[in-house]
Design a protein around this nucleic acid. Sequence first.
RNA 1: GGAAAGAUGCCAGAGUGGUUGAAUGGAACAGUCUCGAAAACUGUCUUAGUCGCAAGGCUAACGAGGGUUCGAAUCCCUCUCUUUCCGCCA
Length: 421
Amino acid sequence: MLEIIAIRNNAEEIKQRLAVKNFKEINLIDDVLAVDETRRSIQTKLDENLSKQNVIAKEIGDLFKQGKKEEADKKKSETVSLKEESKQFETGLAKAEEEMKDILVRIPNTPHKSVPDGKTPEENEVVKLVGEIPALYEDALPHWDLAKKYDLFDLELGVKITGAGFPVYRKQGAKLQRALISFFLDNAIEAGYTEIIPPHMVNEASAFATGQLPDKEGQMYVTKEEGFYLIPTAEVPVTNIVRDEILETLPVKFTAYSPCFRREAGSYGKDVRGLNRVHQFDKVEIVQVVHPDKSYAVLEEMVKHVESILQKLELPYRILRLCGGDMSFASALTYDFEVFSAAQKRWLEVSSVSNFETFQSNRMKVRFRDENKKTRLAHTLNGSALALPRIVASLLENHQTADGIKIPAALQRYTGFEKIV
RNA sequence: GGAAAGAUGCCAGAGUGGUUGAAUGGAACAGUCUCGAAAACUGUCUUAGUCGCAAGGCUAACGAGGGUUCGAAUCCCUCUCUUUCCGCCA
């Protein structure tokens, strides 16, 4: 949610920047300004009225103390019209506030100046490409076939137990999951993040705070009785740790492993084969809450962190700076990481690292005290480090040999084996 | 699922209709003292909206939402949550 004060001060600039995101409803900016105007004028009138009422109440109190009952009773009548008026103002104010919020939640975050124009993923900017695409042997297999060959995971069995997109991992496949989670967490801890194990369901307030609600309601699973949402990413519970807080020390750095649940209705074909897209997957997330002056330096730091992991896994990867049209609603700048999946011969997204500036913190009221002891909104950032399924897909495909799948050296002490056979 | 108690500032904890935005203690911060530190002493110390160039003014908030009243942290209603006990269970 953009700050109303920022819109008030920079309406034109904000409109221009939203155009980069291909935001169509630019008129919402003027709408929200108009409502804000109304809101403030009502607020002023209401405050004046209440002030008058307070004065009279105090006078009546004094009269009673002096024993002047008749005079006090007489004064009571003076408040009648004030009270009625105040009631109307209060109703009007509540309505204006609600309207304002309704509009604000529909306006996306403004993109950073470095965000390229563009509407489709094809227009994302490739900022870096590292590693070589391995030359696979002749009968190299895509990961879903490798899974069968080595009995690593079973999607059909998941269908029986739950439904499509719920893989069952087995044997070395299961151990590999556990190894990757520990490996990712240890890397994050090494980089100064505090490990968290969060709840895997959140309430409505938390889902709203990080921006999953109201617009992405359909992407989440929800429990029938309580109305709890199964988390689509650990970002939601972890970022909500600092909701409504005034933080004494920055930065706050959290990392968390969690399963992630996504409904993702409406995808078909080769894009969803194997582990390319599933409804439940594992992910290690990193989250930072930082001083506004530092957030872009921190974003680069987080990018470096993700890079270092991919390098240790010996996977070819590229980094994309997302164009305006491909960015998420809440982000000001996003880097996507893709690894090359050698047998499928395509790039798979494995991480997304974003700076949200004050977009989330404004909703969540995450503040800190600045140099002048004034409270200010902090900047929030997060990134996947990393999401497992596509890493596994790429790991299996890229490192396959005629007599087994090699485990990267850095990962071997976690798996306990050097090769999947 | 049954029963009881409770929800006040960063924390503890007073306060049951009229200078209570809120006593007192602790923590924290600044200063005095000290070579330095501790102790002691002094001071500061909620957040948000709104008006104002500013100083500052006004308003709101004592779990949430309603109600009674000239006036509510204090009275009434509803809801939420917490704690304890019983039951069930990992």
